[in-house]
């Protein structure tokens, strides 16, 4: 049972004119796994996240989640089924409180939002679940702050808290460490270690140290093609990968 993949991607394609950005990508993610996707700049990692989250339509191929074909579903439908993404460039509601950012994600999955008179900010149920998500990323003490006033690292945490609050089972994290300093990175890596206990995660990340510390499986994307998939150790020793990618990093 646990061996049945929760996310299954087969033959996924996306091309912009002559430029193939996602070229026949296939991989499986089993429940509870953290599957990292690495690759040099321009490899098509973010495009792949867009395709998985449903914000970008694929030209061909199939995406299945929990046994259901979700290829034709848009982002809103996929979120409802439990696939949530974070953004590479922080995308929180800056003018809202930290709590409301998370509470809105809870609201999206709890009852109708066509309610016009009761003040939403005072809905205890929404706020309680939102606080749970914030506590998970250690932002509960910032709940009443305006999201725009958070530090960069805190906003990265809020991104993750919002995805958690949406009730997702599968988190698609698009470079959660982007722009984070050394200390912030350590905190975020620890946070993702914790998330692994409860969530399946597809992680796109540039920070190799973090990837090899966290990932159960690593896939390497180069020019839209997946040239290797396997455990961190096996990918690390793969000669193609070393040539295409890791070599550059180590030389740099």
């Amino acid at each position: 049972m646990s061996d049945a993949p929760i996310l299954s991607v087969a033959g996924l394609r996306k091309a912009y004119g002559a430029l193939t950005v996602t070229d026949d990508v296939s991989f499986d993610v089993r429940p509870g796994e953290l599957h990292a996707i690495i690759g040099p700049n321009g490899a098509g990692k973010t495009t792949l996240i867009h395709q998985l989250s449903g914000s970008l339509r694929s030209d061909a191929g199939r995406v299945s989640f929990a046994g259901e074909d979700i290829t034709r579903l848009d982002m809103v439908e996929r979120v409802r089924r439990g696939v949530a993404r974070s953004f590479q460039i922080t995308s929180v509601l800056e003018g809202f409180s930290v709590l409301e950012n998370a509470a809105l994600a809870v609201q999206a999955r709890s009852g109708s939002s066509f309610r016009f008179f009761a003040p939403a900010a005072r809905e205890a149920q929404l706020n309680a679940l939102a606080m749970d998500a914030l506590a998970r990323v250690q932002l509960d003490d910032r709940a009443q702050r305006r999201a725009g006033s958070l530090s960069h690292g805190e906003k990265r945490k809020l991104e993750i808290a919002i995805a958690l609050a949406s009730g997702a089972r599968l988190l698609l994290l698009d470079e959660p460490l982007a722009g984070a300093g050394k200390e912030e990175t350590a905190v975020l890596v620890e946070l993702m270690q914790d998330l692994k206990q409860t969530h399946t995660i597809v992680l796109i990340e540039h920070d190799m140290e973090a990837v090899f510390a966290l990932a159960d499986q690593v896939s390497v994307l180069v020019y839209g093609r997946m040239i290797a998939t396997g455990t961190a150790a096996s990918v690390r020793s793969d000669p193609d990968v070393r040539a295409a990618y890791l070599g550059e990093e180590e030389a740099a």
């Binding site: 995308s91 003018g95 919002i162």
Partner: peptide, 20 residues
């Protein structure tokens, strides 16, 4: 209200609202 909060959220960041 709930409705108004969705409306305000969409004004501030429609992409974020779709993502949740």
């Amino acid at each position: 209200s709930r409705f108004g909060r969705v409306l305000r959220g969409t004004r501030d960041n429609a992409q974020r609202m779709q993502a949740i």
